[in-house]
Simulated scan of single mutants.
Amino acid sequence: MTDSGDVRPWGRDETPEERADRRWGDVIQEVRVAQTGVQILFGFLLTVVFTPRFVELGDTDRTIYVVTVLLGSAATGALIGPVSFHRIVSGRRIKPQAVVWASRLTLAGLVLLLGTLTSALLLILRVATDNTLVPWLVAGVVAWYLLCWFVLPAWARHRHTTPD
């Protein structure tokens, strides 16, 4: 409640600055989880080109590899972006705006990570299995990612958000 007795619209008894601090902490925790995974995957992808098997890949698989590395690099940039953003704007009293941009970068990073995982899975399964199964296997895993990362959260947000 505010000094006037009104309930704050966001349901917590915190100032806008406290809310921005809390939301910033939330974003950074989320980024830490995603960033670790994308950095490990990206590091692995960077070594693939130096393996003896890489020279045996056909043009299509090399193209998939290049796309995967580019997506992984972009995902890494987007997921590291909030840290750089915070460092550059720190002390400028724009934390609420920084939280918005950090959230956008994190979401972009997750979408790019989805693309990275999809193309990496496509490449690995093309090399490891019968090509006729690959599109179905990749589609199934991508559907799972979409369900876990986007559909369920959107459903919960819609279901548990009260109209204003």
Rank of each mutant, 00 (worst) to 15 (best):
L57S: 04
L57E: 10
G58W: 09
G58C: 08
D59W: 08
T60Q: 08
T60C: 04
D61V: 01
D61W: 02
D61S: 08
R62L: 06
R62A: 08
T63Y: 12
T63R: 03
I64P: 05
I64N: 08
Y65L: 03
Y65C: 04
T68I: 06
V69T: 01
V69P: 00
L71R: 05
L71W: 06
L71Q: 05
G72F: 06
S73W: 13
A74T: 07
T76V: 06
T76D: 06
G77N: 03
G77C: 11
G77S: 05
G77R: 00
G77Y: 07
A78I: 01
L79E: 00
I80P: 06
G81W: 05
P82V: 02
V83G: 14
S84D: 10
S84I: 10
S84R: 05
H86G: 07
H86S: 07
R87V: 02
R87W: 04
I88L: 09
S90K: 12
G91V: 07
R93V: 01
I94V: 13
I94Y: 12
K95P: 07
K95A: 07
K95L: 14
P96V: 03
A98G: 14
A98Q: 09
A98R: 07
A98N: 06
A98H: 09
A98P: 14
V99Q: 03
V99R: 02
V100R: 14
W101M: 09
W101F: 15
A102E: 00
S103Y: 15
S103N: 10
S103A: 15
S103Q: 11
S103E: 00
S103H: 12
T106C: 04
T106K: 04
L107I: 07
L107R: 07
L107N: 10
A108K: 02
A108S: 13
A108Q: 07
G109Q: 02
G109L: 02
G109A: 04
L110H: 13
L112N: 05
L112W: 11
L112F: 15
L112E: 02
L113R: 07
L114H: 14
L114A: 13
L114T: 11
G115C: 01
G115F: 04
T116E: 10
T116M: 11
S119R: 09
A120E: 08
A120S: 11
A120I: 05
L121V: 02
I124Y: 15
L125D: 08
L125E: 09
V127R: 01
A128R: 07
A128T: 11
T129K: 10
T129W: 12
D130E: 06
D130I: 01
D130P: 00
D130F: 02
N131E: 08
V134N: 08
V134A: 11
W136F: 02
L137Q: 12
L137F: 12
L137P: 07
L137Y: 15
L137M: 13
V138F: 15
V138Y: 15
A139W: 10
A139L: 09
V141P: 13
V141Q: 12
V142F: 15
V142S: 09
V142T: 14
A143S: 10
W144R: 04
W144V: 04
Y145N: 04
L146Y: 13
L146A: 13
L146P: 03
L147H: 10
W149M: 09
W149D: 06
F150I: 00
L152S: 03
L152K: 10
L152G: 02
L152H: 05
P153E: 04
P153V: 01
P153Q: 03
A154G: 02
W155M: 01
W155K: 00
A156Y: 06
R157G: 13
R157T: 12
